[in-house]
């Protein structure tokens, strides 16, 4: 699971009001190289919840991202930022671990890189 996916997910258990951001329990992180695509990064940047994203990156052991969301103008000029953003967003994978609902503590397991977001009967 890449951090882009993490940034889009929340716990949707019935009754939970603050299901985002899911805490990450890390068992195994892998890095996979992905070709950088600036257009894609610019398109996706405004959709990212920055706080959740930079916190998640830190949990995964990557500390190079600013804590505050940078001004969108850096996307045009700052190659160094784009590379870091790209790395955290698309090259870090949570291979094994779990996503934890911040309200109930329910764990959504992540195995072989696939988060299992399906709810149990009593959570629907």
């Amino acid at each position: 699971m890449r951090l882009l996916t993490h940034n889009m997910l929340s716990s949707n258990i019935k009754g939970v009001t603050k299901g985002f951001p899911l805490k990450i329990e890390v068992e195994k992180v892998v890095e996979k190289q992905v070709e950088i695509n600036h257009d894609f990064l610019r398109n996706i940047f405004p959709k990212i919840d920055w706080k959740a994203f930079s916190d998640a990156a830190r949990t995964m052991g990557y500390v190079e991202l600013p804590e505050q969301a940078p001004d969108p103008s850096v996307l045009e000029s700052d190659l160094d930022f784009l590379t870091k953003f790209h790395h955290a967003l698309l090259e870090l994978h949570l291979e094994e671990g779990a996503l934890v609902c911040p309200e109930t503590g329910r764990k959504f397991p992540v195995n072989k890189g696939i988060p299992n977001m399906l709810l149990h009967e009593d959570e629907v």
């Binding site: 890449r2 996916t5 997910l9 929340s10 716990s11 949707n12 977001m117």
Partner: peptide
Amino acid sequence: PMPIGLLRADNNLPPWRPGL
């Protein structure tokens, strides 16, 4: 290039965060 993400989810109860 590999998919950005694959996940197990129910289309009837999608797990996308509120506001997304």
